[in-house]
Design a protein around this nucleic acid. Structure first.
Lengths: 246, 246
DNA sequence: CAAGATTTGTTCGTATGTATA
DNA sequence: CTATACATACGAACAAATCTT
């Protein structure tokens, strides 16, 4: 009955002996040429020649690669190897969030759950690393958050910088990017869905400070507590919108 | 100094007052029409008319949406709303893995680290859920793994089904998909990079059984141990290839 | 500042391959 | 087998953005 895996969505459509798609051929070209992020790609006419296809085809393939952040195209300037960020994940999840809006905020709740899980999972290592590499700029960020909250403004920049700084201790680039990607999801989605931050957002600021205190004291349990507290206001906003369930 | 966020890669290029891109307009069309995964999209000529753009532009936008799994196009049949899977994440990470191959297997190591972190993070909840919903098909899967190993074959199907079944207990669709996506990465990447599984792959099979035993006994610590042991052979393969560092 | 060269963005018309009825 | 509807591919022309001279 398991004739077709059927789980593999579209990526695994490589029957091995089939003709490589144009997207793959361009990927191979990047690798063969030894290009890295930021390096400029051949121009479209050049690619048409080298690959023996029309410009329309090259352009469609480039769009695919651009949406995966494998290339980055700048109008009137050229095409460059992209940064291989997780922006496609962000784009996909943002659309998913818009899609099941009206029903509930399921996607956003799940994103927050994963952020919590990730933060808790790296807590041990973070405490250890922080011992060797304290980060003197972090308290200033927390103060800035408080200041901006007092002004009635958001503190997205500071929040992003705070978490990015902590994650940078981990020597795992993918975790950093995943964290940033998930952070982006609700930072972009909530305002876009017209959902205002709750009043107890100040608790979030305090939780940031508590996280720093726990790190300075090398107290893993306290850090875990602070992380959970840190997400509580956000969770409250999301749960309060929990409505119809099919 | 923070004039431009500049951290936002490409997704957030929405100065709010700028003309919505064609991709966004098609996304809006899907949402406005109330379409869901599997529903058929308007045909290309129809979209050209409704959106007032040429066929090529529609096609390029569709390619972008297809690579994000927001639409799925079936040759000669039509275009349909996609499943919103995490296939773009898989595609991007697979390319990244190919890119820093030759240097080291950094990306794959990071993927495994995240899988471990996720599995450990959900251990508590998993044990709890398993108490209420034991899954009688799982031991059979482990036996099948052992049988296939004895035949010298891989057990990708069984492994995938095993982890998918466990994750399905969690009531967090995103975690399931993330787990499956990361699983796909090294399952696809390792053979593609010509790296053979290590001899001690049998330990992985045993670890699967240990995971089940721990779940049946509702022993969280034992489950955590088994999870870690489960990844050890894979980690060994990846660490052994650690070579040049720039 | 201005003109021109380069490069990507958009459009049209046409022909071809593929799945369904 | 034929017909129809659909996606796929191509090539040429023009538009718009960017950089250089």
């Amino acid at each position: 009955m398991t004739a077709q895996p059927s789980s593999a969505p579209r990526s695994a459509q490589r029957p091995d002996r089939a003709a490589p798609t144009l997207v793959q051929r361009i990927e191979d070209l990047i690798l063969d040429e030894g290009l890295g992020p930021g390096d400029s790609m051949p121009t479209e006419p050049e690619l048409c020649e080298r690959l023996g296809v029309s410009r329309s085809s090259v352009r469609e393939a480039m769009r695919t690669l651009a949406s995966l952040d494998i290339v980055e195209v700048r109008h009137g300037h050229g095409t460059f190897v992209g940064r291989l960020s997780l922006s496609p994940l962000v784009d996909g999840l943002l659309f998913r969030a818009r899609m099941n809006h009206g029903n509930d905020l399921r996607t956003l709740r799940e994103v927050v759950q994963i952020r919590i899980a990730l933060d808790l999972a790296v807590a041990d290592e973070l405490v250890e690393r922080y011992r060797d590499t304290p980060m003197p700029e972090l308290p200033g960020l927390v103060d800035a958050m408080r200041a901006r909250t007092a002004e009635g403004k958001g503190f997205a920049e500071e929040d992003s910088a705070f978490h990015a700084a902590l994650m940078s201790l981990l020597d795992n680039e993918l975790v950093q990017q995943l964290g940033h990607a998930f952070w982006q999801i609700h930072t972009i989605a909530l305002p876009a869905l017209g959902i205002a931050p709750s009043r107890d957002i100040l608790d979030t600021v305090d939780a940031h400070r508590a996280m720093l205190d726990a790190l300075a004291a090398a107290d893993v349990d306290a850090y875990r507590e602070a992380v959970i507290a840190h997400y509580r206001p956000l969770q409250r906003v999301l749960e309060s919108r929990e409505s119809v369930r099919a």
